[in-house]
């Protein structure tokens, strides 16, 4: 399968990159890992005259230091997350990075590309939603920040403006005070787009028993990754454990808006939401206790 022809630029810094994008308007596309863009160009789903390779823009690979509020540059790869995000206290994101696609895809696929592609099943999107992350965008007229929830507006749709570049994803400053986990179900165990996924984050009170705060995000069961608010409500203020987790899992299943397709029925997906949510909560809670200790 051949790529259509296009021009190529590799800017060396952000202002050069923004300048190139502004000049070319909707004829230009930023290139990160290429695992979506090059596929879509080959399939004719995307057309463009100019590809602007972001690889030379060093600040897109920045990571905040330990102890600082977490900030992850848009060009960090899924493979990087799988190895490093755990050390930053973001295990859910590490798990999501570790099950995205294949090893080859993980070595290329980036955070920014996953967010901008905005698939309902986007593994990093779902994990970042559970961490209450914000995206930082830069454009010709300056910078702005949006919660992931507002950034992703529909299947394949985002709030990014033409010419803008996604600089970084910033999990909530308090995210590392809790524990997170990611569960993904496919028809096979690896190299699979999620049939259902669940990303959760929980924080413990100082007593090591009571849930202080929680977020539950679901992938592939709606037009965008969904935040199951009722599932969080079922947890907060209650003692962590089988009962609370079962209630949250039930609430998550009710919040899901799955569809029937050739890969699985809506009913199966809904039931699996409950299973994955419960499993993720069990793991996230033990991590939350470590974070509290």
């Amino acid at each position: 399968m051949l790529l259509p022809r296009f021009d190529y630029q590799r800017p060396r810094d952000l202002s050069e990159a923004l300048g190139l994008l502004a000049q070319a308007g909707d004829q230009a596309r930023p290139l990160a890992g290429g695992t979506d863009l090059l596929v879509n160009l080959k399939l004719g789903k995307v057309t463009c005259r100019l590809v602007v390779d972001l690889d030379g823009v060093a600040e897109l690979k920045d990571v905040s230091g330990p102890g600082e509020a977490p900030s992850l540059g848009a060009l960090l790869s899924a493979a990087w997350l799988a190895k490093q995000a755990g050390g930053l206290g973001l295990m859910g994101l590490a798990e999501a990075g570790g099950v995205l696609g294949s090893p080859q895809v993980r070595n290329r696929a980036t955070i920014g590309g996953n967010l901008c592609t905005a698939r309902p099943a986007g593994d990093l999107c779902t994990a970042l939603l559970a961490l209450d992350a914000r995206v930082v965008l830069a454009g010709a007229s300056g910078r702005r920040e949006l919660p992931v929830e507002q950034f992703i507006t529909g299947p394949g749709l985002t709030a990014i403006a033409p010419g803008e570049i996604l600089l970084a994803a910033r999990p909530a400053p308090g995210a590392t005070a809790g524990g997170s986990a990611f569960e993904k179900l496919g028809l096979r165990r690896t190299m699979e787009i999620a049939l259902v996924s669940a990303a959760v984050w929980v924080q413990s009170e100082a007593d090591g028993r009571t849930v202080k705060a929680a977020r539950v995000a679901l992938g592939a069961v709606g037009p965008t990754p969904l935040l199951a608010r009722a599932a969080a409500t079922a947890l907060v203020g209650r003692p962590a454990g089988t009962e609370a987790f079962a209630a949250a899992a039930q609430a998550a299943a009710e919040a899901a808006r799955p569809i029937d397709d050739h890969r699985g029925s809506a009913e199966y997906r809904r039931q699996m939401v409950a299973v994955l949510t419960r499993r993720a909560l069990e793991r996230a809670w033990s991590r939350a206790l470590e974070a509290t200790a």
Binding site: R10, G34, T35, L38, D53, A79, P103, Q104, V105, R108
Partner: peptide, 13 residues
């Protein structure tokens, strides 16, 4: 040292 799908990497990259 890292595996990639060379069908999804530009030669220039």
């Amino acid at each position: 040292g890292q595996t990639v799908n060379s069908c999804l990497v530009l030669a220039t990259q």
